[in-house]
Amino acid sequence: MKNAAETELPQPARRGFLKGAAAAAATLVAPGIFLYRTGQAATSLDNEARWGLLIDTNALSEADVDACVSACQREHGWRAEPGSKTDAQWIRKVKLTDQETGHQKFLPMMCLHCESPPCVDVCPTGASFKRADGIVLVNKHICIGCRYCMMACPYKARSFIHETLKDQLPVAPRGKGTVESCTLCVHRVDRDGANAVPACAEAVNRGERKAILFGDLNDPQSEISRRLQELGGTRLRADMGLNPGVRYQGL
């Protein structure tokens, strides 16, 4: 015996399912999910571009670096959780002091999106990964929070979320028990491609003066490649051979 409510529930039409599967000429796993299908281009990233940043430290004052950090916080909704002993480290301010002359220099420090990222090497689940376009991310769906990547990263770019969070922003889902780091504003990159401007760059770039320049390192005609060719750029700890995608000038 079925009660009234049960009999009113719509059921998928099985005949329609078979017809649809034949018409699509594809292997249907579930509605909308195909093992393969014909005649439709699959959307997937290619490795044509390799995204990077060029940070001109001569053009950045301490206030500029602070603006980078707060812009990143606003963009992704992270902050120092009250009472927490460990801060989120998406981006941080590094102060360099020349002890002889007392000269100080400030630079923003974040995930450098290495070509050979040690965080990816050590990840036991494959959660730490490099996208085809060179952006190094944490797939938080499969991150188990072991924090090996945090220890492997020579730039201390990653941090762990200890607290139960609320009100995360849709562009940056983040939660307790996972590791996180700079995403190179991947949601903006996916939207704007080569014209993307990460939040930190947006905060400090004014007109033609681009203290933080985003671009394609693989394209020799891109502005970032031309500036690197003309003025050079420092790879931090180049001796480790990780070939970071974020380069610095003026160090």
């Binding site: 206030a63 602070d66 707060s70 916080q73 606003r74 902050r79 301010k93 905060a203």
Partner: peptide, 21 residues
């Protein structure tokens, strides 16, 4: 997150909560 005033003025490590190195 803390409101961003656009130029970094008035922000310090206490309001931002990031570490100085």
């Amino acid at each position: 997150p803390p409101a961003w005033n656009g130029n970094g003025a008035g922000l310090n490590s206490a309001t931002l909560g990031h570490r100085l190195e």
